[in-house]
């Protein structure tokens, strides 16, 4: 489900979906609709999109492709996005019901330069790339009325 509502200076998009191979496309579509409605500058939209799609891709890899029970359909992972644009910033909160992500908090807080030093490495750049694309990336594992969830928050100050 995607809903969008704009009031004076704040625009919000929401997405709630089961995580499957269409997940990244759904996040793309949600963001594209919001960028259009809120008239977000291309550079801000591009860089926020880079970070958001890294977080979404991380969930797809670790919450679907690496989980046989989820991939077979015996378990379901649900993701919920809320993205808000106001005059000063773009903010997103993504919660998902997948297993905790080992080391994600550490990686998200680490200086991204150190994570990007090995130019020959084929994996492990996603969170560092996200951190370089926005101003804030925070990961938390928290208790929700429906159970434990992963929560990511992103923020980028608007340049225009």
């Amino acid at each position: 489900m995607t809903t969008m509502h704009g009031q004076s200076a704040t625009h919000t998009a929401e997405l709630r979906c089961i995580v499957d191979e269409s997940y990244l496309d759904q996040v793309h579509e949600m963001l594209d609709g919001l960028w259009h409605t809120a008239a977000v500058a291309q550079e801000d939209a591009m860089r926020f999109g880079i970070a958001a799609l890294e977080i979404a891709g991380n969930l797809l890899q670790h919450g679907l492709f690496d989980q046989p029970l989820v991939q077979s359909g015996d378990q379901v992972v649900v993701a919920e996005w809320t993205v808000e644009v106001d005059r000063s910033a773009i903010r997103a909160r993504c919660r998902d019901s997948s297993a905790p992500i080992d080391g994600a908090g550490l990686l998200a807080d680490r200086d991204p330069v150190t994570t990007l030093d090995d130019l020959g490495c084929e994996h492990g750049r996603g969170l560092a790339l996200a951190r370089r694309s926005v101003d804030t990336v925070v990961y938390r594992r928290l208790a929700d009325p429906a159970g434990w969830v992963n929560e990511w928050t992103l923020e980028r100050r608007r340049s225009a």
Partner: peptide, 16 residues
């Protein structure tokens, strides 16, 4: 239209 870190990883693997 877009690439992410997984696409980059594939390019690096191909380069190697």
């Amino acid at each position: 239209p877009t690439i992410d870190s997984s696409g980059l990883g594939a390019l690096i693997g191909g380069l190697k």
